[in-house]
Design a protein around this nucleic acid. Structure first.
Length: 464
RNA sequence: UCCUCAGUAGCUCAGUUGGUUAGAGCACCUGACUGUUAAUCAGGGGGUCGUAGGUUCAAGUCCUACCUGGGGAGCCA
C-alpha cells in the first residue's frame, strides 16, 4: 500500500489523527527496549522531529538494528495521539523501509552536541544538525523576504555581471578571471602578459560589487536591486569576512540621502519582522542554544527608531566619551571598530546611521557636499556586527564626478559608460549595499560568518 | 597580513616542578529494562599526544620552524 508522503512540519500541525500516512527523513535518535523502539525522524521541513513508534515484535530484527542515527527512512503508519509525554502526536509504524544506513562506527554526527569548529570540517554533513537546519531555513526565508520587499515596492531585480572588465570599483582586491596558459602566457613586446589574447580580450575579474552596473539600471527603471555573489581577494581572516559572499544592492533614482536612510531602516525592520513571524521555531532554538538575548535584540531593532547622526557629530560624541580608545579620535580619520561599537552599544544603545563622512576616506562616486570636505555617505551600524550597510547618495553632476575620477587617478577611459549616465538625463540617485551573511549573522545570533553560508570561501579554504 | 591562545581516543577535554603501562565524560559495541524524550544501568574495545627537527639518562610536558583552528586588529559588506 502506498501512502502519500507528508512533511513533518505539516504532520505536527495536523489534528487529523488515525490517518494512514507516509513520512520520509533521517533518523536523529533511536531509544527503547526489546519491546518498543522510538525513532526521532527529521526531514528538514522544521527543526522539530516526529516520533516513530515501532513495535519490535512486528519487525525484522536486522531492520531495527540498522535504524541508527543518520539512516534515511520511509515510514508508512498511522498518525495517532501520543501515549507518552513530550509530544502530542506520533506515528505507529506499519512498514519501515531503509533507503540508506549510516554506520554508527564511522558516521561523524552524534546525538550529543558538536562544536561549530568541528562541524565546519564536515560541512557536507552539518546540514543534518538542528543548528544548521535552523540557520539555512532562516537564510532561505530572508532571501525570499528580500525579493518580496522589493517586488512589492516597484523595484526590479537586476542581474549584474559576475565577470567584470572594470577594476575601478575600488572596493577591494579582485580575483583574476583568465583562461590563459599560466605556464606559458602570451607576452607583449615589453614582456608583460598579453591580455588581448585572453578569452575576453582584456583583463577581467570577479565582481566586487554590482553597484556601478546597478546605477545604469536605476537611471532608466527608477528602482532596481541586485542580489548576488560578490568576491574579494583580501587576505581577511576574521569571523566577519568571506572571499565569496552575497550582497543586496538597491539603487534608486530620485532618492536623496534621507530617502536612502528611510529605505534602509524600513528594509531592515521588514526583514527582521519577517524572520520573527515566519522562523519562530528556528529562532527560538538559536535563542536557547547560542544567544539568550537574540529574540529580545531582534524585537528591539523592530520597535526603535535608528539614530541618525553625521560623521562630525559622531566625532564630537567620541571626543566627549571620556574613554581611552586604542586608535585616536580625530576628524578626517575613519571610524574604527571600537569607535563604532562605542556609539552603538554604549552611547546610543541602538542602531546608528552615520552620514557625511570626510571625502578623502570615501569612494569617488559619492555626492560631494557644499562644504567641500564631506560626501553624502551612509553607514548603518548594528550592535554585535558593526557596519551592516554601506551606501551613499551618488554624485550626479558630470563635471564633479569626472573631476573626482581624475583626482583619484582612476583611468577615465574605463569609466566612460558610467560617466555617460551623468551626461544624458542625469538624476539625483542613491543606493546601498547590505552584506547578506552579516545580516544573517545578526538574525541568527551566530558569531562566525562561516556558519551562516553553506559553503564558506575564505583564505586557504575552498573545501566542499 | 599582524597580535594572541590552542592542537592528547570518533567528539569535548584533564594530564602537577620533564619521570613507570597517557586518563575522564560522551559516542560506539555487548548485556539488562514493557512508552522512551540528548532514556537509564552494568561491562568492553578504542591513542603515531598536529608535523618535522632539537635539548635531555628520560619529552604529551622544554626549545625552534611549519601546518591547522579559535579570539582580537587591519581591509571592508
Amino acid at each position: 500500500m502506498k501512502y502519500k508522503r507528508n512533511f513533518v512540519k505539516d504532520l505536527l500541525k495536523s489534528s487529523k489523527v488515525d490517518l494512514d500516512i507516509n513520512v520520509k527523513g533521517w533518523v536523529r535518535t533511536k531509544r527503547g527496549n526489546k519491546q518498543v523502539a522510538f525513532v526521532a525522524l527529521n526531514d528538514g521541513s522544521t527543526i522539530n522531529n516526529i516520533q516513530i513508534v515501532i513495535d519490535v515484535a512486528n519487525f525484522n530484527e536486522e531492520l531495527i538494528r540498522d535504524i541508527t542515527t543518520g539512516a534515511s527512512l520511509s515510514v508508512n503508519g498511522k498518525l495517532v495521539k501520543s501515549m507518552g509525554k513530550g509530544q502530542n502526536i506520533e506515528i505507529l509504524a506499519n512498514e519501515v523501509e531503509i533507503y540508506g544506513t549510516a554506520d554508527p562506527e564511522t558516521y561523524p554526527l552524534q546525538k550529543k552536541g558538536h562544536t561549530l569548529e568541528f562541524l565546519r570540517e564536515i560541512a557536507h554533513l552539518r546540514f543534518r544538525t538542528n543548528t544548521f537546519g535552523a540557520i539555512f531555513r532562516i537564510r532561505h526565508a530572508m532571501s525570499f523576504a528580500i525579493h518580496k520587499y522589493f517586488n512589492d515596492r516597484n523595484f526590479y531585480y537586476l542581474h549584474t555581471p559576475i565577470v567584470t572588465g572594470s577594476d575601478a570599483e575600488g572596493a577591494g582586491e579582485m580575483f583574476r578571471v583568465t583562461n590563459l596558459d599560466m605556464m606559458n602566457p602570451p607576452k607583449t613586446d615589453e614582456g608583460k602578459i598579453d591580455y588581448s589574447k585572453d578569452f575576453f580580450g582584456k583583463e577581467t575579474n570577479l565582481t566586487v560589487s554590482g553597484q556601478l552596473e546597478g546605477e545604469l539600471g536605476a537611471t532608466a527603471l527608477s528602482n532596481i536591486y541586485t542580489f548576488g555573489p560578490t568576491f574579494r581577494a583580501e587576505n581577511s581572516n576574521t569571523p566577519r569576512h568571506l572571499a565569496e559572499f552575497w550582497m543586496i544592492e538597491p539603487e534608486m533614482a530620485f532618492y536623496d540621502i534621507h530617502d536612502n536612510m528611510d529605505l534602509a531602516e524600513d528594509f531592515l525592520k521588514f526583514l527582521i519582522s519577517y524572520a520573527l513571524e515566519n522562523c519562530k521555531d528556528d529562532i527560538e532554538f538559536l535563542n536557547k542554544m547560542y544567544d539568550k538575548e537574540l529574540i529580545e535584540r531582534l524585537n528591539f531593532i523592530v520597535e526603535n527608531k535608528f539614530e541618525r547622526i553625521s560623521y562630525t557629530e559622531a566625532i564630537e560624541v567620541l571626543e566627549k566619551a571620556g574613554q581611552k580608545f586604542e586608535f585616536p579620535v580625530k576628524w578626517g580619520y575613519d571610524l574604527q571598530s571600537e569607535h563604532e561599537r562605542y556609539l552603538v552599544e554604549k552611547h546610543y544603545k541602538k542602531p546608528v546611521m552615520v552620514t557625511d563622512y570626510p571625502a578623502i576616506i570615501k569612494a569617488f562616486y559619492m555626492k560631494q557636499n557644499d562644504d567641500g570636505k564631506t560626501v553624502r555617505a551612509l553607514d548603518v551600524l548594528f550592535p554585535r556586527i558593526g557596519e551592516i550597510i554601506g551606501g551613499s547618495q551618488r554624485e550626479e553632476i558630470y563635471d564633479k564626478l569626472k573631476g573626482k575620477i581624475n583626482e583619484m587617478g582612476i583611468p577615465e577611459e574605463e569609466m566612460w559608460w558610467y560617466l555617460e549616465t551623468r551626461k544624458f538625463g542625469t538624476v539625483p540617485h542613491s543606493g546601498f549595499g547590505l552584506g547578506f551573511e552579516r545580516f544573517i549573522l545578526f538574525v541568527t545570533g551566530m558569531s562566525n560568518i562561516r556558519d551562516v553560508i553553506p559553503f564558506p570561501r575564505t583564505p586557504k579554504n575552498a573545501e566542499f
